[in-house]
């Protein structure tokens, strides 16, 4: 388990730190600087095949992004935790490195409104293009605009 941390800390130095995980086979690494996400992903790509899932947690006003990586040849999981704050809800996209991240990042953009810089096709994925707001945010309020949304421009 420590092997994955050593691999990352060799390249990124003090920007990464290991945290306690309560899941078996899981290595939990916290990345303190979101600008290094691409560099970290390049290192992780050497050991892991896919982005298994991208878990965004809304601790308002900051967001916590948990990138869960998985491999086809082992049962190990690596979780990379990055925080992004209210100054700028954006982070570099890793979908050029992990192609499997493409739709997961689109989903995070759709439901949480996080911008992924350099994403090849950053559109909403589950909700319609003109949906008002990002519903998985904790401060999302169901307004009349949302309640009466039909997706059609109807006039009666």
């Amino acid at each position: 388990m420590a092997a994955y941390f050593d691999l990352l800390s060799a390249k990124l130095g003090k920007a990464v730190s290991q945290a306690q995980s309560n899941n078996d086979n899981e290595t939990l690494i916290v990345l303190s600087d979101k600008k290094l996400i691409k560099k970290a992903a390049l290192e992780i790509k050497k050991k892991f095949d896919i982005l298994f899932m991208l878990v965004v947690v809304d601790y308002k006003p900051r967001f916590e992004l948990n990138y869960v990586f998985s491999s086809y040849s082992s049962k190990d999981i690596l979780t990379l935790r990055v925080n992004i704050d209210e100054k700028d809800y954006s982070i570099d996209s890793i979908s050029k490195i992990f192609d499997s991240a493409n739709w997961e990042e689109r989903e995070a953009y759709d439901l949480f409104g996080i911008k992924f810089n350099g994403h090849p096709d950053l559109r909403r994925i589950l909700l319609p293009e003109d949906w008002p707001g990002h519903p998985m945010r904790k401060d999302f309020i169901v307004t009349d605009e949302v309640r009466n949304w039909t997706g059609l421009d109807l006039k009666f």
């Binding site: 309560n22 899941n23 298994f52 899932m53 878990v55 965004v56 948990n66 869960v68 999981i77």
Partner: peptide, 30 residues
Amino acid sequence: KYTFVRQETPRGEMAMYMVTNGDTKPYRLK
């Protein structure tokens, strides 16, 4: 705590990642 579980469903590997905060409901379920 952060809890991660994955299992083999008929369509492939399905997983759930739950963030709890000491309450009676999940804080986030992915």
